[in-house]
Design a protein around this nucleic acid. Structure first.
Lengths: 143, 143
DNA sequence: TATTGTTATACTCTATAACTATA
DNA sequence: TATAGTTATAGAGTATAACAATA
């Protein structure tokens, strides 16, 4: 890649990263009250099916004892339950409860509300640009 | 706004918010090692001029004692300095040091490196879309 | 013997309440 | 009396090390 194009890529990457991080920060500041960020994160991991504490610790990149504690809080608050593993007596399956699903729904609704208010003020063309960008950004984040 | 258009706006807002938050999370996971997130945040607040602990606490939405501690860590690490306020003997001015500026530069470079690697793989057209989107997102975040 | 999960212990960041110095 | 900053103390979240139960 030529130097000039590389410089443009660098500038775009900076602008894009900063914009994403600032929006993320605003969303969290304005709307996260019900559960702590790491609890929300774990809750959304078990949304589509139970996982073991070990798996959750690896996914969330925290230690096993930390995950034990976080799961303990979720269970204590009625947002998740511990169940025995059918095949392996050592393992535990952390399962989301109906109340846990409700917390996920409400938190997402609050977060989205902030964003909807801003997107609604844009022009149709700006929204179209953002729709294209959202697809590309989602792919980047998934790598 | 018609119902159908409102639904599209809602969907776009969700997709966009999720993409931004996931990218933000990835960037932090992959590249934040030198200073803690809240230290980095405070450091960037005093980048363009000194601020008092009170002002920093308000901006960062933490308590005054928390900010006292964070500033204490920054000072201990040589990234910031405390200076007397010229007019008001009660107040303190927290000033960034040359070493503090270097930490900001290095952390930003690491964060950008992750993003540059991904943006470089995109097509010219995708980059053009993202460049337009970055402008719009920056405006949204600034509101 | 290796793995899963938990408990024991310590460190960091956060908060509220109380204290000191200055306006 | 009010404000800025700090110190005292306590409550979460995180980590490593040690332990119990199971494979």
């Amino acid at each position: 890649m030529p130097t000039k194009e590389a410089a443009a890529t660098r500038r775009l990457s900076e602008d894009l990263r900063l914009a994403c991080m600032r929006i993320s920060r605003r969303v969290r500041f304005e709307s996260d009250h019900e559960v702590a960020p790491h609890q929300f994160s774990v809750l959304s991991r078990i949304e589509d099916g139970p996982l073991t504490p070990r798996a959750l610790a690896d996914i969330e990149k925290v230690s096993a004892p930390s995950m034990t504690r976080t799961v303990g809080c979720l269970v204590e608050d009625g947002l998740a339950e511990r169940a025995a593993h059918p095949d392996d007596g050592r393992q535990v399956l952390v399962t989301i409860t109906a109340q846990g699903r409700e917390v996920l729904r409400a938190t997402r609704a609050r977060r989205d509300a902030w964003m909807v208010a801003r997107v609604a003020e844009l022009s149709a063309q700006e929204r179209a640009t953002l729709a294209d960008a959202a697809k590309i950004l989602a792919e980047i984040a998934a790598r």
